[in-house]
Amino acid sequence: MAKIRIPQNKVEELRQICKSFNYDKNELINVLHSAQKLFGYLPAEVQELVAQELNVPLAKVYGVVSFYSFFDMVPKGKYPVSICLGTACYVRGAEKVLAEFKKHIGINVGETSADGKFSISCLRCVGACGLAPVVTIGERVYGRVAPDDVQKILKDYY
């Protein structure tokens, strides 16, 4: 991972987060949730700081970050595209929808486009199976997406 500098005011904010959880080791996952909300992702520097503050080995923090799919170590795009690949979406053709997004944005799953606008990830079921196949872009949920709709959906974000 390339070294990045986190701005001093955000360092302070992160310290406050750790403090608000009483530096409790049991709260590691909740601390990381808050940290990811603050930074958008969890680069090495953030993990180091969390390890320091909670007084746990860095390896343990990294172990938790890499274990859970919700935590990211690379920044996501401005508009993160998530395609649900749960069973209900799968049997209703989510793979074709995913292929279409990959083609139009020109990146693979887990990547972020060069202009930082889009990133693609796969989800395991958002529980909106009645609307399968489901795609989320940021907070917005798109239901019953057909491969032909993809271009139209993306147009809103260019």
Partner: peptide, 25 residues
Amino acid sequence: IRYGAGAFVCGEETALIHSMEGLRG
């Protein structure tokens, strides 16, 4: 309330308890 972080195995009760303790599930 405790939050999961996206791991299917955490539905298993011992894994869930580990996750609640801030560990890998």
